[in-house]
Design a protein around this nucleic acid. Structure first.
Length: 944
RNA sequence: GGGCAUAUAGCUCAGCGGGAGAGCAUCGCCCUUACAAGGCGAGGGUCGCAGGUUCAAACCCUGCUGUGCCCACCA
């Protein structure tokens, strides 16, 4: 027997260890069962559990447990990501507390610090996934910087280089001057900001004329190498080809006509061209053969290419000085407010400086093509479908991927340079206070790309080889995840069994970062798309729809919800992150449990919608789990000391029923159960997890608990009912409960296991619900007739309860007599057979069944259920005014519905064109409605 | 500038061609021996606005308005 009250923390503490020790999570690559595999989106190794993790664990674990129960060899392959920039920054911060920088301690010592940090913190996130119940195969846990995965990275790099799909080239790139690294296009944010447009006069050399240009970055004018106007612009036609004086630096630059560079309608129609610091200008420069002058350096300060006065200034300082000096020189025409969109680093928030630097690139166009085709052909399906459009749009316009980063933490690029052959192109720059010199390798240096460090230069034989100092973008290694984790480049049994995987489940915001790249690499190296289905879950937001962030104080920490918390016992910084939560719940949160969180996330995460997490919803679903718990207690109490106690057979099901032993209500609940099983299965197969959860919720609570259990009590507690009937009822109770538990297990694994383990079972039953078979709907139990009859019973009881409720008759107060009037023999038979149930559920002492024409005692209250007139003599129970009001309300309701149906049937087009079944339904409604209305009206007339 | 999504009860959300649903909140009556984290009953919505298609529209189409997101070298 389970405990009297449901205590999630206690229950959830019990089972994870049991599952692990039994090895249920382990998938066997030599199994004969069909494979089902999900690879985890690897969380950052030093990360801390957040709601996004909770959501993906919920869905992926649900799918994995479901498939495992269905008899698949289910592998959920876990691991963590080294998260290059994020981890490096975190360790740098740690160093800063000791007043050290990574440059001071040098690369080698720094990397040792990061590894130490990883060893210390790396298991946290894994332990937290376990709290949620994640049934990952931990024996296969991987880390993107493992030796095996690093080998895969080198293999891919070398092969792509040899195929010409990776190359080194000097281009304008996004430079983050704070993080001191290049970023890919995807790592840039563009948020509009309030800024200005400065209009500056450039004088035409040797003339009184001038041209006014507009710019949002006046400090870059030192790098201008032209002014562009539109060729059709009448205002400037005459000065195209002439030189203008570049203010403050005594150079002259040409005025060029370029239809792509200049928009006649914008600003003054004339634009300064700075090819070394602007992407558009870079292209313009190429088209017009303009020189590039780099006036801003890696440190985001002005270089020695600007007049001495400005050298060493930051971009901001230089802007101020430039504007000041232009003003003094009378060349500043106007400053207007302007809303512009600067590029900022997602990581550091710094203004990105476009700089000309040699970097490593992946030719994305070539790799993207087969990935696009795989989705077009349906080899990989995306759910929700609309993401395919987004995917195509990006993939069709994909640009080459800059994969090198000037970081230390990551996979160092397997490229080497010969100090002899590339002499003059490799620069060691000693800097004060820096352990290692900076290493700059010009674009002209010749890389030797190799999986291992070559012993000597293949050209000149020199042994002085220098490895490229850069590391690869984190997403390069995560792009290999679906096969690198399975042992590639070796052709392992795991790869043979589990690649390609069945489902990729992830957040849509990394569709380009991660999903697209796994598609590209997977197809290129494995010859097959890495997953059949991609399911994108939504973003978890706060209850107001805002993204959760520490600075907004609207973070909801999954662990605080699962275990509950008192505000005073939460550390100050965490409390600040969750300020909103504690404002709403000043006394703290009760423990909700991982099951309730999982069930809630499942319910809230409808396809394609963002999740607004409201704790009240979670509390509601915890109440549901409590309901399951209590219903289970009821069932178990009624099994004790009976022979139904050992009824659950080896397949997890109770012994087969004899259909002829089933009562009307037994048949009805089994009909409902089998429909429920079919619906839940279909919902999960279609990734409609919320529908499945809703279906179980509704069936368990509104059908099983509210009606079947109450009806079962009548049977079980009756002294006159025979033992065989009671036994069947017990069997049905435990069968329905046990089946629901199995349906519910992927949604709420802990509590279903706890209850299931307490259920009576034979020796042949499986050891755990998680390896019990998934329920299969049995059509033999579908029974429309019993379902309809039971519905009549329910309608009768509801009608009586409606009278009771409206008349405020206390539940404890019995109604002495109720008349049930109908001429329909079938319905009379239902009432007669179910009399005891109706009496108990309606708390009625005596029921008399009679014909429709029978005399009614006056005064009385009247209800109608499925054509049966239900007459409650007033006695002293009912207030006549309230009864008048109740009848008027019901008459209005029935009249409205009746008229609606009549109106439809009066329309010849409806009768002619609508589906015959629909027409028939309306006819039935009219017939029933007319009877009911007539009865209600008569009853009302009796009351005067 | 392009694209996508979304608007349903006080709140958070399902439903997406045939009589408006859930949870929470609200209002009655109840500690009825599984459950007060509960039971029984009730109230509450011209389903964003305007057109259109259809016998029938919350649901399909068009436009508009609000909101959110993504992409894009608008000096």
């Amino acid at each position: 027997m389970i405990d009297k009250s449901y205590n999630p923390t206690q229950v959830e503490g019990r089972w994870y260890k049991f599952w692990t020790e039994k090895g249920y999570f382990h998938a066997d690559e030599h199994s004969k069962k069909p494979p089902f595999c999900i690879v985890i989106p690897p969380p950052n190794v030093t990360g801390k559990l957040h709601m996004g993790h909770a959501l993906f664990v919920t869905i992926q674990d649900l799918l994995t447990r479901y498939k495992r129960m269905q008899g698949f060899e289910a592998l959920w392959l876990p691991g963590t990501d080294h998260a290059g920039i994020a981890t490096q920054v975190m360790v740098e911060r740690q160093l800063a507390k000791e007043n050290k920088t990574r440059l001071e301690i040098g690369r080698e010592a720094f990397l040792e610090r990061v590894w130490a940090w990883k060893r210390e913190k790396g298991s946290n996130i894994i332990e937290q996934l376990k709290i949620l119940g994640a049934s990952c195969d931990w024996e296969r846990e991987r880390f993107t910087m493992d030796e095996g995965l690093s080998r895969a990275v080198r293999e891919v790099f070398v092969r792509l280089y040899e195929e010409g799909l990776i190359y080194r080239d000097e281009r304008l790139v996004n430079w983050d001057p704070v993080a001191q690294t290049v970023l890919s296009d995807l790592e840039i944010d563009n948020e509009p900001e309030n800024g200005h447009l400065w209009k500056i006069r450039y004088k035409v050399a040797g003339s009184d004329e001038s041209i006014v240009i507009a710019t949002s970055r006046p400090e870059t004018l030192f790098g201008d190498t032209a002014v562009a106007v539109h060729p059709d612009d009448e205002r400037y036609k005459h000065i195209v080809g002439k030189q203008v004086e570049l203010p403050l630096c005594g150079r002259t630059i040409p005025v060029i006509a370029d239809p792509l560079a200049a928009d006649m309608a914008f600003g003054t129609g004339a634009v300064k061209i700075t090819p070394a610091h602007d992407f558009a200008d870079f292209e313009t420069g190429k088209r017009n053969n303009l020189p590039r002058i780099q006036v801003i350096g890696l440190d985001a300060r002005m270089t020695d290419k600007v007049p001495e006065k400005y050298r060493g200034m930051t971009r901001e300082e230089c802007r101020e000085a430039t504007v000041e000096d232009l003003k003094a020189a009378g060349l500043l025409v106007e400053i207007v407010d302007y809303n512009f969109t600067p590029s900022r680093s997602q990581r550091s928030g710094a203004l990105v400086e476009p700089l000309l630097l040699p970097q490593w690139w992946v030719n994305a166009k070539v790799l993207a093509k087969p990935a696009i085709e795989a989705v077009e052909k349906g080899e990989t399906r995306m759910t929700p479908r609309l993401w395919e459009k987004t995917f195509f749009n990006w993939m069709n316009n994909i640009r080459d991927w800059c994969v090198s980063r000037q970081l230390w933490w990551g996979h160092q690029i397997p490229a080497y340079y010969c100090a002899e052959c590339s002499k003059g192109h490799i620069h060691f720059i000693e800097k004060p206070g820096q352990k290692d010199p900076d290493l700059r390798i010009d674009n002209e240096a010749k890389p030797i790309v190799s999986k291992t460090k070559p012993e000597k230069c293949p050209v000149c034989g020199s042994t002085h080889l220098i490895q490229d100092p850069d590391v690869l973008d984190t997403w390069f290694s995560s792009g290999l995840w679906p096969f690198s984790t399975m042992g590639w480049p070796d052709n392992t049994d795991t790869l043979k069994k589990f690649y390609p995987t069945q489902v990729m489940e992830t957040a849509a915001d990394i569709i380009f970062f991660w999903v697209a790249r796994m598609m590209m690499f997977g197809i290129h190296f494995m010859g097959e798309t890495p997953f059949k289905d991609i399911y994108f879950h939504a973003l978890v937001r706060d209850k107001a729809g805002l993204k959760m962030s520490k600075t907004k104080g609207n973070v909801i920490d999954p662990l605080l919800l699962i275990y509950g918390c008192k505000p005073e016992s939460v550390p100050a910084d965490e409390r600040a992150a969750s300020q909103q939560l504690f404002d709403d719940y000043p006394k703290g949160i009760d423990p909700q449990g991982a099951d309730a969180l999982r069930f809630s996330l499942t319910m809230l995460a409808a396809q394609g919608r963002d999740v607004r997490l409201d704790i009240r919803r979670i509390e509601g679903y915890r109440a549901f789990l409590n309901k399951v718990w209590q219903a289970s207690r009821f069932v178990m109490m009624n099994l004790e000391n009976t022979d139904a106690f050992s009824a659950i057979a080896a397949d997890g099901c109770v012994e087969p029923f004899k259909v002829e032993d089933l009562s009307m209500t037994d048949a009805w609940i089994l009909d409902g159960l089998n429909r429920c099983v079919a619906d839940v299965t279909k919902s999960i197969d279609e990734f409609n997890f919320n529908e499945g959860a809703q279906r179980i919720y509704d069936f368990l609570w509104n059908v099983f608990c509210d009606w079947y259990i109450e009806l079962a009590k009548v049977v079980l507690y009756s002294e006159t009912t025979d033992e065989k009937t009671k036994r069947t009822t017990r069997l049905v109770l435990v069968h329905v409960l046990e089946t629901i538990l199995r349906l519910l297990h992927p949604f709420a694994p802990f509590m279903t296991e706890e209850i299931w383990q307490s259920l009576p079972k034979t020796d042949k039953a499986p050891e755990s619900i998680m390896i019990a078979p998934w329920p299969v709907a049995n059509p033999a139990f579908l029974n429309e007739k019993s379902a309809a009859m039971t519905q009549t019973l329910i309608d009768i009881v509801s009608a009586i309860r409606n009278i009771r409720g409206e008349a405020n008759i206390a539940p404890s107060k019995a109604i002495p007599l109720v008349l049930m009037l109908t001429d329909d023999a079938d319905k009379r038979s239902i009432v007669e057979r179910m009399e005891a149930s109706i009496r108990q559920l309606g708390k009625i002492e005596k029921i008399t069944v009679d014909g429709a024409a029978a005399a009614k005692p006056a005064p009385c209250a009247i209800g109608v259920a499925d054509g049966i007139e239900i007459v409650v003599p007033f006695a002293d129970l009912i207030n006549i005014d309230e009864e008048r009001a109740r009848l008027d309300k019901n008459i209005a309701k029935v009249t409205k519905a009746l008229e609606a149906s009549q109106r439809k049937l009066a329309n010849p087009n409806f009768v002619a064109r609508a589906n015959p079944e629909v027409v028939e339904t309306e006819r039935t409604r009219v017939a029933n409605g007319q009877v009911e209305l007539e009865k209600l009206k008569k009853a009302r007339a009796l009351l005067g």
